[in-house]
Simulated scan of single mutants.
Amino acid sequence: MHKYHYKEPKKVETEYQRRISSVNTQILDLTIKPHKSSKQFNLYFVPTLTILSLVSKIERYNSLLKELSFPLPDGAKESLHDDIIVNELFSTNQIEGVKSTKKEIVQSMREIKEKYTKKPRFHSMLKSYLRILYADNKLPRITKDVREIYDNIAASEIEENNKIEGPLFRKESVSVVSATDRVIHEGVNPHYLIEEKMQELINFLNEKDEIEKVIKIAISHYYFGYIHPFYDGNGRTSRFINSLYLNEEYDKLTAISLSRSIDNDKKTYYDIFDKTNSVINRGELNYFIEKFLGFIIEGQKTLIT
């Protein structure tokens, strides 16, 4: 709809009504209120052939990853897993502007495996990603679970002025600005509403319905960013939650190969949020879903290579 608004401005309302009235359109119970808008929109998407083709490609690449990794000796598998985790953590830090080096992350992982008494930097973060590979994981069911993930994934690297002071999430308002300091989005506020929206998101992810799980994962990444429950660390927390759910549906290698491809194309990553948040887009998710599924595919392709 964002693109259509500029292409056919006089027909945009008719086109919007046509899309949300289509028998195939999936209208969600998740709502947004864009910046400087008095209107509230239900999120929706049209399950196009493009989206279905991307889902199919993810499944094919996932099968190929399993086929390629299965015959590897245990030592080679462990080395591969370590390398993927190091790259994933390094990339997710790069996206969020957290200074780290691959050498530092490798050293921290070594210290964890050798059970050093002193906890190294990124201790909780590394342990969380290692659990995806080697242990059973608990999916979030209530908002408290999301806060626990944040504490493990992001909290140790958050500056003092961005620490969370609410029971679970931030208490003050927060704005997302562009490179030119233009406000492009304001996170949900106050605290009780953040809790409500977050529980709606958790319910959406865990509900069994006809929407493909990987499409739900893409939508959840957008909605987590829209809610913006923390002052800082939202992206790292959200991407880890994505990995938890990808791990339920696909091979572990697919589950931890997302951040590197996003880091390689941060311009598109920020653009899909910007356009989906805008009032002229009216809650449509197709652009976001397509690009996000593309990030998963690029991560898989890198690992296959």
Rank of each mutant, 00 (worst) to 15 (best):
I112R: 09
V55G: 09
D151Q: 10
L126M: 11
K213D: 10
I164S: 10
K7I: 09
K163A: 12
N93F: 11
G299F: 06
L89Q: 08
V23L: 12
G187Q: 01
F122R: 01
F204I: 00
T25V: 12
E186K: 03
S173I: 07
V12Q: 08
R60T: 12
D209N: 14
N203D: 11
E15A: 15
Y116V: 07
G166E: 00
E148W: 13
F292A: 02
P47V: 13
T92A: 02
D151L: 11
V177R: 08
Y4A: 06
Q94V: 12
E104I: 05
H221E: 09
F45E: 07
M198H: 00
E196D: 06
H228V: 13
D136R: 15
Q17C: 04
K138A: 10
G233Y: 09
P71W: 05
V12A: 03
T50C: 05
N152L: 14
S257Q: 06
L133C: 14
K291R: 08
K252D: 10
I194A: 02
V86Y: 10
Q40P: 02
I256N: 01
H228M: 08
V146N: 03
F204W: 09
G225L: 05
N87A: 13
G235C: 10
T92V: 01
N152F: 15
F90Y: 07
V106M: 05
S37R: 11
E210Y: 10
N87V: 09
I158Y: 12
D209L: 07
F204T: 01
V188M: 00
H81N: 14
Y231P: 12
F90G: 01
I296Q: 02
S22M: 14
E290H: 04
I272D: 03
L49I: 15
F41W: 08
F204C: 03
K119W: 09
N189D: 07
I112A: 01
T101G: 07
K77T: 15
R182I: 14
D263V: 05
R182H: 05
I296T: 06
I132Q: 04
E212V: 03
F292M: 03
N264E: 05
L285T: 04
L64F: 14
S156K: 15
H221N: 15
I272G: 07
V23C: 07
N242C: 04
T31F: 08
G294T: 02
S124Q: 09
I241N: 08
R141F: 13
Y116S: 13
E114G: 04
S37D: 03
K33N: 11
L246M: 08
P71M: 02
G97T: 09
E111I: 13
H81W: 14
I27V: 15
D232V: 09
S91P: 13
Y250A: 07
D274S: 05
F90T: 06
T268I: 14
V12C: 08
I217R: 04
H2Y: 15
P229F: 04
L54E: 10
F204N: 00
F240Y: 10
I219V: 00
V176S: 02
L68V: 13
G187N: 00
S108H: 02
G235A: 05
K66Q: 08
